[in-house]
Design a protein around this nucleic acid. Structure first.
Lengths: 298, 298
DNA sequence: GGAGCCGATGAGCCTTCGTCAGTACGAGTA
DNA sequence: TACTCGTACTGACGAAGGCTCATCGGCTCC
């Protein structure tokens, strides 16, 4: 039941004789003969019919060889993929992004990464729950994660910058008149909140508690873009990272006082390879703090 | 570069640790460890990142494992297919039919075969040229062939019956008035003939020569059904096996004098297995000679 | 009937795999 | 801080399997 047996069987079927297959494979004839017989003995089936002029696949042999060819070619692909990975960068990079961090920076970094390493596939888990993130991280599926706080302190955590949080107000909201919203002024407002146990909801709860506000929940959503849209429609106010505000809603956004800010930390997994390092470097080169971005619209 | 290495690597990726993979595979831990290391050494790439809690696939490792899984599953399918073929009948039966022989009998036999062995796939090469047939036969691709004459005389050739040839006349043809057409009466008629070097054209040429007729070629076609249709439209007359006449054209058909008849011989390949034998037996059970079938329509 | 082709078989050598023991390293805990 | 537990790795040894050489049996073609 080895790949070699498959390759030998395929060569025999292709060449029509053990001898020809043997010289194609650069081995002696008995070797091929033994492998074929061993395969047939192991499977309990005659894969080839013996004719005076060579070996010919039987009915069941053909069915077998069809699958065997898939196995062999897949093996070749696996080998080629890995060997290519030695020089070039080939593979599948798994990235998790919490709290909408890097919404503005990630596309640029991933685009640059794709230009430099076209055969590198990137999968991004956007705003997974804490439990999901934990699970992915524990199982080692993740190569890089963007998050606010990290329990694992070692050198694998890199501080990229800080993300300022902003409130999104409904169209016509009275607080749109000021440049920076005092959080206490939002007493009594209904809030568009986030999924229970999500990091974003945790930040929001902390902010409300620090400013002696009682949270009135208008709705809970999973994605920051949804929260912004619902808040814009007047369902309530919400608090999201500045870079997570979609285009077209900037006029409904205000920075807050006291300032709410979270560090953006890139956690690279243990034993990071060149792919992870490259993406981390590209992320570093992006601009991470633009304090004047959300100045009041004129 | 062996299947075992793939299986080990997949188990390690699945379980997240060498130890767990080892007990899943019912082998000792160092064995798995060595195989993984050997694989990485051979490929020159680190497939797994070592963490204190186990092994985790790297970026290139994931790409490799994706292909490896295909190889392993294909191998399992190959094995399952072959082992199933030991009890049941599984596989791909290749049949060649020359000169439209068995057009009436084959569907019945193949249907019965399919009912008895549902997992047996049958591929029929219809009316291949002599060169094609020769090539297929030489390479041992064919399991069974229906033909008129066979150069290989041994016990692998089974006489199923005889196929009487009939002429197909154009609608309104004067010879439709008689029950059996004298071939000499067709002097000067244009003929719908068959591809050069085809067995059918060989039979036709022999018949014409034996009856001192000079062949006037109206057209050459590959398939008997086409020849019948064209003859029915008055393009010329043609000579085909009786069973090859499609439904709806029986009234344009006449037996000939002197009788033209060819033996229908089933040639089974060397080392025939149960599938070939079963099909041969089913073909035998079909009725092969129906002399009164083409009596004149009233 | 002999020459030439085919695959099958057996003996010997060598590589490889598997196991057992022991080592090294990091994490969690008292 | 030290101890224990978990992890993977390494080296030595025995066993199994692959490869090669030489040989045999069967068939075809001349």
């Amino acid at each position: 039941m080895s790949l070699r047996q498959y390759e030998y069987a395929l060569a025999v079927a292709e060449e029509g004789s053990v001898t020809a297959a043997a010289e194609l494979l650069h081995v002696a004839q008995p070797s091929v003969s033994q492998q074929i017989r061993g395969l047939e003995r192991e499977l309990g089936v005659e894969l080839f019919a013996r004719t005076p002029t060579g070996l010919v696949p039987t009915v069941v042999g053909r069915a077998f060889l069809r699958e065997a060819e898939i196995a062999v070619s897949a093996s070749r692909r696996a080998r080629a993929t890995a060997r290519a990975g030695a020089d070039e960068l080939v593979g599948e990079l798994m990235v998790a992004v919490q709290m909408g961090f890097g919404t503005r920076q990630l596309p640029g970094a991933l685009g640059a990464l794709r230009r430099r390493f076209p055969r590198l596939e990137v999968t991004v888990f956007e705003e997974p729950s804490s439990a999901e993130l934990e699970r992915l991280g524990r199982r080692g599926v993740l190569d890089l994660a963007l998050m606010a706080a990290c329990e694992q302190s070692p050198a694998d955590a890199h501080h990229l910058g800080d993300e300022e949080f902003v409130v999104v107000l409904g169209a016509g909201h009275r607080q749109l008149a000021v440049d920076r919203v005092e959080l206490r002024e939002l007493e009594g407002e209904p809030w568009v909140r986030f999924d229970r146990d999500s990091a974003l909801d945790g930040v929001l709860l902390n902010v409300l508690r620090d400013n002696d506000l009682t949270p009135t929940t208008a709705a809970r959503v999973s994605q920051t873009a949804t929260a912004v849209r619902w808040a814009a429609h007047g369902l309530g106010v919400t608090l999201v990272p500045a870079s997570a505000v979609p285009h077209g809603h900037e006029h409904l956004v205000r920075p807050v006082f006291p300032v709410v800010s979270q560090p953006v930390i890139a956690v690279v997994r243990h034993g990071a390879g060149p792919a992870e390092t490259a993406l981390l470097e590209l992320l570093r080169q992006e601009t991470w703090s633009e304090p004047a971005f959300f100045s009041p619209v004129s």
